[in-house]
Simulated assay, not measured.
Amino acid sequence: MLVLVQNGVGAKILTPIISILIILGAISTAVNMISGIVTRCVNSIERNKSEAERTNGHLLRNAIFTAIFTFLAFAIAQFGLMAVVKKGYAYLGYAAFITLFVPFVVHAIATKGKEI
């Protein structure tokens, strides 16, 4: 969009507008993603609690998880996403081997391949 606007009609006016909209879109996406994961984590923790216990510490749990995930997003931005992904994929392969491949092979051997 930015390249098209810069080479088209009204580039001096539309370029800053498009740039601001891109920044606002990135911020709103980040806020929605952090809000979603905070809601899921807090709901997961509060699932086995009574209604009184849920309402008692709900705001504090939201604040703690929001701080954790905001710091995590900030740390990823500081180190660079590609560096995190490069290191993470190596460990993700080991985790997948242990959690997916090994149980699949054990299950196949136990059922003699009938339930694959």
Rank of each mutant, 00 (worst) to 15 (best):
Y94F: 05
Y94Q: 02
A90C: 15
A73D: 01
F71E: 02
G80W: 02
G80K: 04
V85H: 01
A77L: 12
I68P: 00
G93M: 08
I76Q: 02
A77Y: 07
A83I: 08
G88M: 12
Y91C: 06
G93E: 08
A75E: 00
L59S: 14
Y91S: 09
L60H: 08
A95P: 01
V85L: 15
Y91L: 14
A67S: 12
F74P: 00
R61L: 07
G80R: 03
F69P: 02
Y89K: 15
A63N: 06
L59C: 14
A77W: 07
I76G: 02
T66C: 13
A83R: 12
R61W: 06
I68N: 04
A90K: 15
I68D: 00
L72R: 01
L72M: 11
A73Q: 04
F71G: 07
F79E: 12
Y89L: 15
F65E: 03
I68K: 03
Y94C: 06
A83M: 02
G93W: 00
K87S: 10
A67W: 03
A90L: 15
I76W: 05
L59A: 14
A90R: 15
F69Y: 07
F69R: 01
M82F: 15
V85Y: 11
Q78I: 09
K86M: 08
Y89W: 14
A90I: 15
A67H: 08
